[in-house]
Every structure is written in C-alpha cells, then in structure tokens.
Design a protein around this nucleic acid. Sequence first.
DNA 1: TCTTGTGGTTCATATATTGAACCTATATTT
DNA 2: AAATATAGGTTCAATATATGAACCACAAGA
Lengths: 269, 269
Amino acid sequence: MSAAGKTLALLSFFSASRPEIGLSEFCKLAKRDKATTYRHLQTLEESGFIEQDALTKRYRLGPIVLQLAQTREITVPRKRGTEAPLLALAEATGETSHVSVLSGTTVYALAACESRQHSIRAIVDIQTFPLHATASGLCTLAFGPDTLFDVAVANMEQFTTNTIVTQTELESAVATVRETGFAWSNRSFEDDIQSVSAPLFDQTGAFAGTVTVAAVAARVAPGIAPSIQRYLITASRDITRNWGGSVPQDIEAIWSRTLSNPHMLERAS
Amino acid sequence: MSAAGKTLALLSFFSASRPEIGLSEFCKLAKRDKATTYRHLQTLEESGFIEQDALTKRYRLGPIVLQLAQTREITVPRKRGTEAPLLALAEATGETSHVSVLSGTTVYALAACESRQHSIRAIVDIQTFPLHATASGLCTLAFGPDTLFDVAVANMEQFTTNTIVTQTELESAVATVRETGFAWSNRSFEDDIQSVSAPLFDQTGAFAGTVTVAAVAARVAPGIAPSIQRYLITASRDITRNWGGSVPQDIEAIWSRTLSNPHMLERAS
DNA sequence: TCTTGTGGTTCATATATTGAACCTATATTT
DNA sequence: AAATATAGGTTCAATATATGAACCACAAGA
C-alpha cells in the first residue's frame, strides 16, 4: 500500500464508539511503527483531517470532513433519501435498520436508525460490511457486479463459528439470495445478531446498495420473517425511488414469489 | 509536502460548484504531473474517499466522507449548534450568513445559510478563509492565537485591488477589530462582497471561530452597520452558548462601547 | 528509586514516489 | 478519410521520500 493509503487508512479507525485516539493506540490498531504513525498523523493534521486535543494529546476528526460530506451530499444526496424510509422501517420492526452502498468493491455503511422500542438493540458501528459474512454483503454479491465474488472469496475472514468459510457454501448462499430476493445472516458476523437485507437500485436501474434490518437474535421469533420482509420491500421501494430509480420488475417478481411460498421462506431463514 | 499530503490536498478541490473533476482538470488545479495525479486519485479511490463515474470517468467524493462527518459530529457537534442562530441571522439581515472555525492555523467554513429575501445574494462556496483578506480571517487574527499573525503575513496573496498587502496595514486592521469587536472586509477577497464578522468562543472561553454576514456590496446602505452588528452579537451569543461557552465579559464590553459610539462605527466600516 | 506507560525525535538505510515519454480511444477539424 | 487535439491511462529509470530502531522527556504507579 502507498504511504498515502496508509495515512488515509488511519482515519477509518475513528468511529462513534472510538471518537478520539492517541498515538500509541493508533500504532496498535494500525500495527505500524510509532515514528511512521506519528508522521502520518502530522500529515492528516496539516491537511485538517484530524485535530489534536491540546490537553489529552489524543486525536479526533477535524472540521474539513464536514465540508467534504456537505459537498458529497450535494453531489450524490443519497443519504437524505434514506432517512424517512429507514425511520419507518425501524419503527415498524422495532429493530435497528441500516443502509449500505457499494463503491468499488467495498460495501460502506451509509445511514442507520435505531428503534427506541427496546433497550437492547443492535448498534451499527462499522464502516464496511464483509461481503461473505453479512446480509448486506451477501445481498451485494447476489445483485451487484459478478466480479465481486472473487473479491469475497479472497477475503473470507472467519468472524464467528457461523461465518461462511468455503467458496462452495458462499456460492450456495448467494444462489439462495438470488432465488428469494432477500439475504439473511444468522450470527455470521457478530454473535447475537441476525440480519435481513433487500437490494436497492439507482436511477440507471443498477444495483446501488442494500437496506437491512439487524435484529437481536434472541428476539427473532419463528414465523416473523414474512412481516420483516414486507417492511423491507416497502423500505427498498421508497429508498430506491428517493434515489431516482425504481425496483426492477424481476426483483419484484422474486419478492412476490417468496412471500407467497412458505417453503422458500423457511429456506431463506 | 509529503506524498500523502499532496494526495489529501486533491480532495480540497471539490466544492459545491465543482462536485466532479476529471484527471486533466485535477492536473491543472493541483499543478502536478498526470501520472502522479492519477496515482493519487487511485489511492483516494481505493480508500473510498472518491469514486469514479463509470461513464464520464470524472471523480467525485465517495461515501466514506459521510461516515467521517457523522463521527466528527458526534465527537464535536458544533455544526448543529450553528443552525438555528445562522438561520435567524440570515432572516434578520436578509443576507447570507456563515460560521467559520479555527483548526491549527487555518480558518475553515463550517456552515452557511442564505437568505431567501433577495434573488442576488452572496454564496459561500469556499472551504478556507485567508487570514488577511476576509472578515472571518481578520476576526480570527484579532481574537485567536497571536502566532497566527506571522502565518498571515507569510501568505498575503492579493485577491482584489482592496486586499491588504502590507504588514503595517494588516496590523492596523487587526487593531481596529480588537477595538471595535467586529471585523469588516470591503471587497478585499471577492468583488462586490462586504462582510462583517464577530468572534465565537468555546466551553473553555477560548476563541473558537467567527460568525459573519456576507452582503452584496451594492446593498450595504450607509448607516446599516449598527443593525447588522446587533444581530451579529445575538448570533455570536447563541452559537457560543450552543458550543457550551459564553462570550467573555471584555468582548461584551467592547461591543457595548462600539454600539454606543457612532464615531467608532464609522471607523470600523 | 525503578518501572511502565505516554508523546515525540533523529538519522542511516532502503523503498516508494516521480515525471518524461508512451499508448489508446474518442471527438473534432481539415 | 486523414490529421489533429484532447481525454484517460501506463511504463521505467532516477532519485527523492518513507521507514523504524533507538533515542529523549515526561508523568503515573509500584
């Protein structure tokens, strides 16, 4: 990786749960030398991407990222288009809902909405979703560019005992997603979380992302699937419409078949 | 500058009025080699900071900046604290209002609000404000860290025929700002724009940024200054409060003196 | 006092960055 | 249809730049 790439990679260690990071912590996280890391941080600070707390010496994201986000929103105002449907989805299901977008070969988290219904709920605090281990990832593999499959196979890290680890299993899982129109993940990325995803499309009719319900596994009662899927379909249609597109006819047909066929529902979950 | 710094610098060329940029355009803007620029763009794309339009081959900001902005907002939710006061200021004055923040030695635009009162109005489409040529910059020099003055003197680019170009003039201008509590700029950065700034403070009582009214110069009638300044004082108090601070007593005293002294108002504008 | 943990710095070494020249494709002009 | 211009993208030798072991300074605990 280029020096610039390593420098930029440091930024991805910031998150809502880790908003401030010190030099030593960065070294551990990035598994890199202290001097190198320090210089990278200096570069980021000079560019305004991070700023250092004068007292604690810890680093946090700088104001320039707000500028960039504003410009991005003006250019591709997708996030705004997810807000209302995501809120509705979270309210209807009582579970955390989130939207991911595909850029290059990476599935990025774009927006999330937590339901206030339960005090225990899923928290979406990750920036990228592994293709093989998450509902969002599987959904992207099924409906996104075919070239992604090789990328997925090349990065099959095992996160839990339920994570898919062989190419054959992955092929089978993706096939099921294509057949049902929904992607399921059952404790395959994080313990105690079960997710369901549906695809989203842009104005060109191309796959553009996923909308997902992430539920606390203990709460997922048998037979709840059709209800969640119906809400997901609504959310997918709404977000896709807000992005200037519409759900392709073949996807609508698959959803319709899945919902009218209890056998397929069982397979999917 | 380090390679990583040059790479990051490319991102600052994106703005609301230039949301998509091609390779050749980047070369001209950054005054750098095509091969180098291309590799830098590749690095940015790999890191998710930009994405390339499949058809036009032009680059635009990627979704990762939305993530970073969200984390920044959670860490330092300053932008939100400016929204209501800025709207009120824009409504009251009928002119574009904006807020800048100081990070390191750079004055960054944080938020802007355009009044709908006039069809011709100032557009704030810059990311950083030159210290010597803008009301925000002069206000920062007057109330921010003293070390900034040398930085300002070292970067006295002439933008218009009204731009301050000598150290003596700059010293005098900053002194006036300190005496009056407001910074004025009259066509010194952009033709036809006159701005007035007031300082903002954070929870530690330290200078943290500026709030500014940017008016179309033709519309700035003589004698309108006291009215704008009164609205600016309100906005400064409100934003400072939202940031967890309060306007220092000495600044309040200076404002009070300025408003009750017509002679000083004339000097300031 | 000694240890362990921060953040920050130095300098010889080695590796990653650079840019002129190149290729390819697509418009536009002659 | 050939010529020209402009776009995005690629190559490789030269060299400028990044690297990390070892270093310092300081603070908190044992």
